[in-house]
């Protein structure tokens, strides 16, 4: 985008913003292909009620008063897609397995092609190579590795849908007996600062009797889920609603649903652990999982 008299804000809103073209497209698309109805909203109505908010030197996307309900529907659709699809436990676990597969492929298995792919050396050669990779190629290359490797085993599990199991999942404030400092670290367990704690926990959990696997196959994770109010305030909440009487107000003050919503419902941060579990009856599974839960709580409460 270059030249004079360009509506930068307006163009940016179309490419990246609370009502951008991508978001409007992917909610409907993902909803359709996942076979769920959560992402459904009145696309035509929303589009027909788009307006432009103009002030002295800028223009941005706004919505006409008549489009309020369609926008509410859109915000709810986004919320339901996040809670029911994008943050679904299988999706969260699968993401964590893909990351672990790539990490172990680089750090433990020392697969040369992965090292080349994930260490940016600022050369054009790097970019050429990177652009030649896509999901399928990465899968095939990892699955075709001739030696026994952690990456290959994790990707084989993904390919055969023989996923790890979620063996622990609790809201962090509900884990009894853990110190405040540890609580703070568990909420941010994937940060670089906490990588040693993450590795130690994974190793100790892998040694539990009920699990007894290699430490590379245990994944600890923290999962954040915001309340609907917090998801939309600062985003759709700021969209200007253009009233027929020329009044303008942000969406979060205009929507009757959101104005009346009790937004003190707090967000959750869960601490979760995924690991392979052998096939067993449901009764045995519940028994084992509750034993594992107790062991993990003991482990966490002993951390200094």
């Amino acid at each position: 985008m270059s030249g004079n008299n360009v509506d930068y804000t307006l163009m940016k809103d179309i490419v990246s913003g609370p009502l951008d073209a991508d978001k409007i497209d992917y909610l409907s698309r993902d909803s359709y292909y996942c076979g769920v109805k959560y992402g459904v909203f009145d696309f035509d109505r929303l589009l027909n009620t788009f307006s432009i908010n103009e002030d002295s030197n800028d223009r941005s996307i706004a919505i006409k008063e008549d489009g309020l309900n369609a926008l509410e529907q859109f915000v709810l659709a986004k919320y339901y897609m996040i809670t029911q699809v994008y943050s679904h436990k299988v999706r969260t676990m699968t993401d964590a397995m893909i990351i672990r597969g790539i990490e172990t492929g680089i750090d433990s298995d020392e697969l040369e092609f992965l090292k080349v792919l994930y260490f940016y050396d600022k050369t054009e050669k790097y970019l050429d190579n990177y652009l030649n990779y896509w999901d399928d190629r990465l899968n095939v290359e990892i699955l075709s590795v001739s030696k026994k490797s952690f990456a290959k085993e994790i990707f084989q599990r993904l390919y055969r849908r023989n996923l790890f199991k979620r063996i622990f999942s609790k809201n962090i404030p509900d884990i009894p007996g853990i110190k405040e400092k540890i609580r703070d670290k568990l909420g941010d367990i994937n940060s670089n600062e906490n990588s040693q704690l993450k590795m130690n926990l994974e190793e100790e959990i892998s040694n539990l009797n009920q699990i007894n696997c290699e430490k590379e196959f245990v994944i600890v994770n923290s999962v954040k889920l915001k309340s609907i109010w917090d998801l939309f305030s600062g985003q759709e909440g700021n969209i200007v609603v253009d009233y027929q009487n020329s009044q303008k107000k942000p969406f979060e003050q205009s929507s009757t649903i959101f104005v009346s919503m009790q937004h003190e419902i707090t967000q959750n941060i869960k601490f979760e652990v995924y690991a392979p579990l052998k096939e067993m009856t449901i009764r045995d599974k519940y028994k084992i999982i509750s034993e594992i839960e107790k062991s993990i709580i003991d482990l966490l409460s002993g951390l200094e």
């Binding site: 962090i172 404030p173 405040e180 909420g187 917090d230 707090t266 967000q267 959750n268 941060i269």
Partner: peptide, 11 residues
């Protein structure tokens, strides 16, 4: 949000 989620801040 993180402070609320971790139970350090109440609303």
């Amino acid at each position: 949000d993180e402070l609320i989620g971790l139970g350090f801040v109440s609303v």
